[in-house]
Design a protein around this nucleic acid. Sequence first.
DNA 1: GCCTCCAAAATGGTATGCAAACGTCCGGCC
DNA 2: GGCCGGACGTTTGCATACCATTTTGGAGGC
Lengths: 252, 252
Amino acid sequence: MKDDTEARAARIPADGKANVTGAADAKGAAGAKGAHVAALIREMIIQDELPPGAPIRERLLAQRLAVSRTPLREALRILSAEGLVELHPNRGAVVAAPSDQEVGDVLRLLGALEAYAGEVACECATEDELREMWALHFEMLAAYQRGDRLAYFHRNQDIHLALVRASRNGALIAQHGLLNARVYRVRYVANLRTKRWESAIKEHEAILQALERHDAAEVARILRTHVTLAWEKLQALEQDEAAVKPAMPAFR
Amino acid sequence: MKDDTEARAARIPADGKANVTGAADAKGAAGAKGAHVAALIREMIIQDELPPGAPIRERLLAQRLAVSRTPLREALRILSAEGLVELHPNRGAVVAAPSDQEVGDVLRLLGALEAYAGEVACECATEDELREMWALHFEMLAAYQRGDRLAYFHRNQDIHLALVRASRNGALIAQHGLLNARVYRVRYVANLRTKRWESAIKEHEAILQALERHDAAEVARILRTHVTLAWEKLQALEQDEAAVKPAMPAFR
DNA sequence: GCCTCCAAAATGGTATGCAAACGTCCGGCC
DNA sequence: GGCCGGACGTTTGCATACCATTTTGGAGGC
């Protein structure tokens, strides 16, 4: 078996080809090979080809990506700064496996960021931007009607991305993209497993309506909790499962 | 003249030795030589030894830091991800020289982050943490009385750092540290040049009092604007100067 | 049978060498 | 005199080779 990752079940398909999270590599972010390799590995991590906790063997991965170890190592340093991999000195790199605590921290932070973005967007979003958000919202509704959870998830992400972009704050957009990449996989899984389609749609509608009303406080209020809700529901769900089967080993 | 940076006037002295910004290198942040070099360069940038816009010559800087080019290049990739240097493919690296727009973006984002941290701290800050913040506040007052702008600036930073830490959100603390590093120098200069000592102190008092009252909304409201105020005042000041001497070349 | 210690293999870390790209400078040409 | 073009030097980018550290397998002793 040459490519053992092919067998993984939890593979996350992306309907686009790359830059799934909208991680906007800022202006001077480099265009060297190392940055390109970093993007490749980032996608591999997000799509669960490199699952959390997996050790990264430099020589192996380098020859799989058909590059030398030097650019690969540069890529790992970049991803480490982004929080997607953990570097253990003299002991190699592993794909970051954030604890529940850390995931919660990042999600709460994301919620605060989006809330702020929403407040700013209330003041400065254009008609076109609002229209585009509504369009994405309806595409999301369409995916909901068809039961297409993947498309639903991506339109959902697109809406949040559009909202953040409407803030016109480059630093905010970049930070949001980075943090989003760190929890992308968790949110995807949470989206698949929880049953809260309807409430999320209602919240989105409320957000967009509040945006049109320029009701910044309301936008912020909803976004704060909206971002973390799916995850909290998933945690509750897992606790229930754990209560049913307490003998399950700590597999995380 | 061998070391031309020695002659710079705007050198920023740090009374501690390192980690001036409290940039908390997160858990798995690597302990290899590359990360160490990155920390060195970060300090050099923050302390204005490497001024914004300065090109970074790999061989030169490598031998000055007594390391080879490989770890130095890794360090540059890290700093690029942090937004402190810009990498131009095949054309080298330069110290990031953020535009006024970008500085404003980062500062507004920082304000939003601290506001959120303040809200959380309202709920979960301990008595000890509050006492420590008051202690730092009084140290800041002492520096104010002595006219020691450097100590004042550092105690000021310490207070904000303590506030963010009180949020107990690792991701928030880390992001705050990174963003803070990007505007550290600007804020230092703004602190030196503007005359708003008193109002800043009043605001800090109001923040701490609101914290004790668990008045999250008030804490957030003040912090939002507090962070950007010094910078805005500096911009107004520079515009006045520009109005007086309009013939000044575009020197930043 | 288990623990400990040692050695060898593998892995990450660093340094250096080579190739390609960019900027610059000088000379020729219009 | 000004402009264009080519050659040179410098600098970055990548790859490979070497070194240090860790880990793992096994053999010996308790």
